[in-house]
Nucleic acid binder design. Structure first.
Length: 109
DNA sequence: CAGATGACAAGAT
DNA sequence: AATCTTGCCATCT
């Protein structure tokens, strides 16, 4: 089991109806420039942890579909839509839904 | 042990 | 605007 407490902690802090990009999470987790590690961390823990993994998306504002997921690639988008996030052509408005991390978190970089 | 892979991002073309 | 290239690093084969 990989140990990425920071990443989980960050993701867990994403509020309802908001999303964060991998780069953003990586940045806040002290992994500046290593968004892939975030993806991997989530990929391994998702099934185990109770974190809002669906609120983590790529920088393009789309949900990543790999089909290697829990089993459902549409699930993520579905959950987000359920939270009130509007998808347009499989993409969402990052300007609108992007999570703005607490200042304390930013300063702890 | 070495090479390939991947839920990505930012810069260049 | 869209696609290609490079960087980065844990995990997989």
């Amino acid at each position: 089991m990989s140990c990425y407490p920071k990443i989980f902690d960050i993701v867990r802090q994403i509020p309802y109806a908001q999303v964060a990009t991998y780069g953003q999470v990586a940045d806040l987790a002290g992994l500046r420039g290593k968004p892939r590690v975030v993806g991997y961390a989530l990929y391994r823990v998702t099934a185990d942890a109770t974190i809002p993994w669906h609120r983590v998306i790529n920088a393009k504002g789309e949900v990543s579909r790999s089909s290697l997921r829990h089993g459902n690639d549409d699930l993520q988008q579905l959950l987000l839509e359920k939270e009130g996030i509007a998808f347009v052509k499989g993409k969402l408005d990052l300007k609108k839904y992007r999570w703005q991390p607490p200042l304390a978190l930013i300063q702890s970089l």
